[in-house]
């Protein structure tokens, strides 16, 4: 099952700064809820883990991610990741394209488009639930990423401390359900 999402995020920093943080896996990973970097293979390829819990299903994905496109000249980045749950609950593939552009008067507009393909137990929640969960995850990441850029290393440490656990399922699922009925 594939779900797609297009998102935009405005940041105060200039594209060069955003690019630097975004392309550093060690920095980036702390802003992703429930994620952990386990091995850096080279500057474009690395391994990690991400935990997610939706309703009764807890999945811990072990995976690999690669920057398959990194064009600093026009700030275009493609991140491809794939992973599978250690307990055999399924797998996920993700392709994320990010384009940064400078906002007049300062700051960066980040445009991202993501395609997420899910198999196994998580897919059984259906695309509406997965889209809602995905939106929620993006919002949490955006919040974390923004404070990471705003506050620098202090925020990074705080997030790293608190983020060892999986992204909380109960509240996430509930938020997603509420999202379905909104408007």
């Amino acid at each position: 099952m594939e779900v797609k999402a297009d998102k935009e995020l405005q940041l105060k920093q200039d594209p060069q700064m955003v690019w630097k943080v975004m392309t550093d896996p060690a920095l980036m990973v702390v802003s992703v809820p429930g994620a952990e970097l386990t091995e850096t293979l080279d500057e474009r390829n690395f391994k990690g883990k991400i935990g997610i819990k939706i309703g009764p299903v807890t999945a811990k994905f072990n995976g690999e991610a690669s920057f398959t496109k990194m064009e600093e000249s026009n700030y275009e980045l493609t991140l491809e990741g794939k992973g599978s749950d250690a307990g055999g609950k399924g797998g996920a593939n993700m392709t994320m394209n990010i384009l940064l552009s400078e906002i007049e008067g300062g700051g960066t507009l980040m445009k991202s488009s993501m395609a997420l393909s899910i198999t196994g137990k998580l897919a059984q929640f259906g695309s509406r639930m997965i889209v809602a969960v995905n939106n929620k995850m993006f919002d949490q990441w955006a919040k974390n990423f923004t404070s990471l850029l705003d506050q620098g290393s202090e925020a990074a440490e705080k997030m790293a401390d608190g983020d060892a656990q999986a992204l909380d399922g109960g509240s996430l699922a509930w938020t997603a359900v509420k999202g379905l009925f909104k408007g």
């Binding site: 393909s117 059984q124 259906g126």
Partner: peptide, 14 residues
């Protein structure tokens, strides 16, 4: 089923 063969309504809620 979706195109990957995932059942999309594998419980009595769906």
């Amino acid at each position: 089923y979706d195109e990957d063969g995932n059942i999309l309504n594998g419980n009595f809620m769906d």
